[in-house]
């Protein structure tokens, strides 16, 4: 399964909006097979902040760490935010170029 984050907006910054985005995505996430990987695509995201990311990507990192793959993470705010989320949860993301 691939999640294209820019479908939630190009500026992903508020905790409240991050929580709403995750709630909206939950029903889709429920269809993920046990053996399936979960790819999160950051292309088109122009600004990311830890508040939004912790409510969405942070939750995915905790629940699906082994199967979670992030891609197109070159935006500076995306990079630095993901590093903070890793620090908060003491877990590492799998990131592909």
């Amino acid at each position: 399964m691939v999640i294209t984050l820019n479908k939630f907006g190009r500026i992903l910054t508020s905790r409240e909006i991050g929580r709403e985005a995750f709630a909206a995505f939950k029903s889709t996430l429920a269809t993920l097979n046990d053996s399936e990987t979960l790819e999160v695509d950051f292309s088109g995201v122009t600004t990311l902040s830890p508040s939004w990311a912790d409510e969405f990507v942070g939750v995915l990192l905790v629940s699906y760490s082994d199967r979670l793959i992030l891609k197109n993470t070159s935006n500076p705010s995306v990079k630095i935010t993901l590093e903070l989320i890793e620090k908060i949860h003491q877990l590492k993301f799998n990131i592909t170029s």
Partner: peptide
């Protein structure tokens, strides 16, 4: 250049939210 603006807006977003 290099989407450096995103760091500014990310900081503004956190302080403002």
């Amino acid at each position: 250049e290099g989407e450096k603006f995103s760091l500014v807006s990310s900081v503004v977003a956190e302080i403002g939210d």
